[in-house]
Design a protein around this nucleic acid. Structure first.
Lengths: 104, 104
DNA sequence: ATAATTACTTACATAAAGTAACTAACTAAA
DNA sequence: TTTAGTTAGTTACTTTATGTAAGTAATTAT
């Protein structure tokens, strides 16, 4: 019947957050720039999907990719201002999890 | 290498929020109890998945299911305290979306 | 007896994610 | 100068998740 009285901007933000891995990638980047292999091994995401997510996040202006032509090449992913602004969401998720989820 | 220095409770909360539709279901329930068909039509989720999500959320103690044996039967889904406690997360997502996403 | 309503479930199709091997560009070692 | 090692991916293939559409069960109205 009524296809969405939901604010389309909210809906878009929510669909971003509900993509598998996206939240964790952002969470990891909140502690500073990270390389591809670091993200990959620290959170158990597959390279295939990590690559896809980073590209999406870059396209959306949430993540920034920088190449350092060292040897071997170093590529760092970090948050833009738009990405950093997601921190309060992460903090609230953190709070909720600590209040409502069991320790084990 | 290091398989998750990430707090397991945070990780669990995040994996809850990153399930497709879960966030929107909770968002809808923040405005009060809702029936199956209302949720289904207001957010474009398929019945199959909605049913699955509501069961999961009930199992996790986030959603409460109540049966009113009227005619035809009325079944209402609402948030428990644990579910209501997710509101600050939703508010932050709302804020971010209004600040950082374009109007169209 | 037939149709209508709600809250689902089932079977099947498509899309998203996981796995593991492979590539490209470079360097260091044998 | 071949071989191996590193990073940052990509590709082909498999498994899992989701969408679609039809079906079910319980009840009442026509």
């Amino acid at each position: 019947m009524d296809q969405s009285l939901i604010c389309p901007r909210f809906e878009k933000a929510m669909s971003l957050m509900s993509q598998r891995w996206t939240g964790l990638v952002i969470y990891q980047l909140l502690t500073g720039p990270k390389r591809f292999c670091t993200l990959e091994s620290s959170m158990g995401i597959s390279g295939r999907v990590l690559s896809e997510r980073l590209k999406d996040l870059e396209t959306q202006g949430i993540v920034k990719r920088e190449v350092y032509p060292e040897t071997p090449v170093r590529i760092e992913y970090s948050l833009t201002d738009k990405g950093l602004a997601l921190e309060p969401i992460m903090k609230e998720i953190e709070k909720w999890s600590q209040t409502w989820l069991p320790v084990e």
